[in-house]
Amino acid sequence: MPYIAVDQLSKTFTVRKKREKGRLTREKTAVHALQGVSFSVEQGELVGYIGPNGAGKSTTVKILSGILTPDGGSALVGGRVPWQNRKEHVRRIGVVFGQRSQLWWDVPVIDSFSLLKDIYRVPTEAYQKRLAELTEALDLAPFLRTPLRLLSLGQRMRAELAGSLLHSPELLFLDEPTIGLDAVSKLALRDFLKYENEKNGTTILLTTHDMEDIAALCRRVMVLGHGKKLYDGDLPELLSRYDTQRVITLRYDGGAALPPLPDGCQVSREGADYKIAYSPQALPTARLLTLLQSAGSIRELTAQPENIDHLIAAMYREMGL
């Protein structure tokens, strides 16, 4: 029996629009946030959950954390139905919303933590141990006694993360945890998530738009679009499907012209620069380079690095999102 079992989950919101002039009633539209989504996650997995804005990611997280009741389908988390018996369920999960603070704004971080200890009824000994572990792993010591409002975004995120893990949840939902963080903070956060997942076996479901996060952390990824699950499986495999094109830019000495290239290459010209898009499967890079060199001496050549965001954009386009 998987740890999270979601079957045919659906949720529809009714959105009332502003009344149009000259009409008595307001128009209502049904927004199908989720339409029959099914998946399962094993204990200890670290799964990425991606999709464009409005795909239904947050709705899924809200249902699985017991905030929302679905209209149809079933979901079991650790054998519990999340929206029934809310208190019993939330005791065992942790949720971090990147955009929403769970700690108290004007009080020192440590005071917030100690109140959370009371809220979750964590025994003092377990709390001390966990706090020490998190302080060490997330490097909280320098600002533990500083009010939250004086922290930088990166520090605040670390504090938030610690706050949601104090009660040692078995499942952690992360909703865009790296939003707005600088490179160093992002890396530190990723390292920590890996550590928490491996050391404590915490199951993690990570929602994000930052593909680097996913690539660094998750082997498995689920793609959601328009309330439906579009892909569920290996991240490298997903990427290889869309990773079909490479682009290089080059300039010749003395403005020599391009040699004729095989079919399937798209060439565009900007001043003296040529931009060539080709598919390495059809035309190996070595052969292309030989061809190019035969036309003259190359002064500059840049290969555009593989960009995961481009791949995802291509994928969303193809899936019609």
Binding site: K62, S65, I67, R86, K87, V90, R91, F97, S101, Y120
Partner: peptide, 17 residues
């Protein structure tokens, strides 16, 4: 502001929180 969500994520009564 949706802050109520945060309260729903804690194992305590809503009125109490």
């Amino acid at each position: 502001t949706g802050q109520l969500d945060t309260l729903l994520l804690r194992p305590r009564g809503i009125v109490t929180q």
